[in-house]
């Protein structure tokens, strides 16, 4: 399956999940984190995944991000079947197709921010000159071009998260996967970061974010609610444009 087209909208389907089940063994007990999730996400969609803790949203994100593989079910990402891949192929998919933005930023503390942003390019085998150029470009997009040699501990939380976004962007991934991106930030900085994700989406990027805050989810076009490992609701967010206009005004 190379490219799929959503029947109703005519958009290209980027992620296709079918009957995804993920169970963990905790001692002798089996924990059902996901119990049969089926889902399509198209290119340039902006999806918020919500749900109470224990609903399975982190597990879903891990599976979408190819950090974890489902116990059963099919998952294909940009036409590639994830279940068939071995570990280094999965590492390669994460490198090429997915840009992660974590709640705790997850930058390397000892490396300067340029090196942090270069890292996906290093593991992607991009030559030094181009690597540097692209990393600088990505940092310019997030407004940190003048801080290249700073280390994460010399930056504010918001700046760290912007470095993380630059790192997520630098390989032009198919999807940006943001796990509670504003969770460790004050509301104003959080708004900045969300604005940045909005801009990325407006620029054609597919964005999936996990959150439990309604006002963060309000940025997305589509809100997916999980409960007990199943999709409880999957609705288009009609208020998105209204909210955005309100903020702009």
């Amino acid at each position: 399956m190379d490219s799929h087209v959503d029947a109703s909208t005519g958009n290209e389907v980027l992620l296709q999940l079918r009957d995804i089940v993920r169970t963990y063994e905790m001692g002798s007990e089996l924990v059902h984190a996901l119990c049969g999730i089926s889902l399509d996400i198209c290119r340039n969609e902006y999806v918020a995944v919500m749900g109470p803790s224990g609903s399975g949203k982190s597990t879903l994100m891990n599976i979408i991000g190819c950090l974890d593989i489902p116990t059963s079910g099919d998952y294909s990402l940009a036409g590639e079947k994830v279940a068939d891949k071995n570990e280094s192929e999965l590492a390669d998919i994460r490198n090429r197709l997915i840009g992660f933005v974590f709640q705790t930023f997850n930058l390397l503390p000892r490396a300067n921010i340029l090196h942090n942003v270069e890292l996906p390019l290093i593991y992607g085998g991009i030559a030094r000159a181009e690597r540097r150029h692209r990393a600088e470009q990505a940092l310019e997009r997030v407004g940190l071009k003048d801080r290249l040699t700073h280390r994460p501990n010399e930056l504010s939380g918001g700046q760290c998260q912007r470095v993380a976004i630059a790192r997520a962007l630098v390989r032009n991934p198919s999807i940006i996967l943001a796990d509670e991106p504003t969770g460790n930030l004050d509301s104003k900085t959080g708004d900045d970061i969300m604005g940045m994700l909005d801009d990325l989406h407006a620029g054609g990027q597919t964005v999936i974010l996990v959150t439990h805050e309604d006002d963060v989810a309000a940025h997305a076009q589509r809100v997916l609610c999980l409960r007990d490992g199943q999709v409880e609701s999957d609705v288009m967010n009609v208020d998105e444009s209204v909210l955005r206009n309100a903020r702009a005004g």
Partner: peptide
């Protein structure tokens, strides 16, 4: 450990 996790998440292979 955490650094290994970060590196793996952004595409480091086992070999790296």
């Amino acid at each position: 450990t955490r650094e290994i996790g970060i590196r793996k998440a952004i595409g480091a292979r086992r070999r790296s």
